[in-house]
């Protein structure tokens, strides 16, 4: 449970706002960090902490793309495929990455649960495309070879078991 495990951080979050309701987004990040994704059960837990209706919490989680209401791989790779990135080869980069990980052309999660790949809208790094964001950290000026190295590196990290990512 968040309340027990992260009591101190939760307290800090609430301290920033005039009422508990306002802490909902920060708590959703904390919850996602803890559980990997936001299940309905987790949404209810956050709702109880903020003292608001669970429907409101789910509405917020649904609006922002950085919250995920589906299980994600340990490494959540978001590739920008908007027009400027596409002009620099983001489409080929994206399909190459998917093929390398054995995923279909629209991305998805690998069977071992390590990687989730998905195309996203603009990440504001058009000049450094192709690029991706792994668990919200940027990796820019990529090509297929570079990303394969990164993937192997992340695999190795995961193999070591501590799961430090980014």
């Amino acid at each position: 449970m968040l309340a027990e495990k992260h009591a101190e951080r939760i307290e800090k979050i609430f301290a920033k706002y005039p009422d508990k309701r306002s802490g909902v987004m920060a708590l959703l990040y904390l919850a996602q960090e803890e559980y990997g994704w936001l299940s309905e059960e987790v949404l209810r837990e956050v709702a109880e902490l903020c003292d608001i209706d669970p429907t409101q919490v789910r509405s917020i989680a649904g609006f922002y793309t950085m919250y995920s209401e589906k299980p994600k791989g340990k490494f959540w790779l978001q590739v920008c495929t908007d027009l400027p990135c596409a002009l620099r080869g983001a489409d080929e980069f994206f399909s190459g990455l998917c093929a390398y990980l054995g995923l279909g052309e629209r991305g998805g999660t690998t069977e071992d649960g390590l990687f989730t790949v998905e195309p996203v809208m603009c990440l504001a790094a058009c000049d450094k495309a192709p690029m991706l964001q792994c668990n919200f950290h940027y990796h820019e000026n990529l090509d297929l070879e570079k990303v394969k190295m990164l993937v192997e590196q992340w695999r190795a990290e995961a193999g070591q078991g501590d799961g430090a990512v980014g």
Partner: peptide, 17 residues
């Protein structure tokens, strides 16, 4: 506050949990 929107754009829909 038992009804709310979920998602956005074309996927926007009414939910309650």
């Amino acid at each position: 506050e038992v009804l709310a929107f979920h998602e956005r754009g074309r996927r926007l829909q009414i939910i309650t949990i």
